[in-house]
Design a protein around this nucleic acid. Structure first.
Lengths: 105, 105
DNA sequence: GATAATTTCTACAATATAGAATTTATCTTT
DNA sequence: AAAGATAAATTCTATATTGTAGAAATTATC
């Protein structure tokens, strides 16, 4: 795509928002909350993988926590490129939305 | 998709912006101008068709004009559903962007 | 051993993107 | 004034990429 797709953008913004708490399931919860819709596991993890492939985020596996349950959390953070991409898309976006009757930003 | 894709959104906003002058080639020119990038013919017409299938725009073929050249223009306008969709996406979008360090809307 | 929280993996559906082909009007030339 | 050249626009089609769902696997505590 020429730009971040919408799910990619939502996930990327959510990683930024969650900061130190940005791991898969948490991201999913936050996206669900902000949109009010159901997001399948894949609809979060697949974009996450692709964002990492494109160099917009970096991840690392954390050590197990004392809470019950499974695999270690994989934490994500934005890279410089990721931040730059967000700024780019915000600029373009504003150009499209500005000055429209009934819809000004 | 859960929401308008980004190209769909750009095309839809541009139709709204161009108002009475919203036909394919004109939409393409405007999108190219606002993004500063190349947009192929298909990358405009395919989303246009899908927007119409989904009921977000309506089109009609105009009569030939006195200028030289080919097929009649097909003009597009937003439907009620299209306008509603834009408002919906704007609301969601704001929720994701608001209150972020370095990126507030 | 059961259960829980998380990630990994995989398949299929939908959308993005490019550009050739087609259509149909005016322009140009004779 | 007819015939071919040219131009503006749309329609069509194929391939690449992205979206979406959920089963399977992993690994911790109860």
């Amino acid at each position: 795509m020429k730009y971040l797709s919408r799910p990619e953008e939502m996930v990327l913004l959510t990683i930024h928002r969650l900061d130190e708490e940005a791991y898969g399931m948490n991201i999913r919860n936050q996206v669900s909350e902000l949109t009010g819709k159901y997001w399948s596991i894949g609809s979060i993890y697949v974009p996450l993988d692709r964002l990492e492939q494109k160099g917009f985020v970096q991840s690392h596996l954390a050590n197990p926590t004392p809470e019950r349950g499974g695999k270690s959390k994989r934490y994500y953070k934005l890279t410089e490129a990721g931040m730059k991409e967000l700024k780019e898309i915000k600029k373009i976006y504003s150009a499209f939305w500005e000055g429209l009757p009934d819809l000004s930003i």
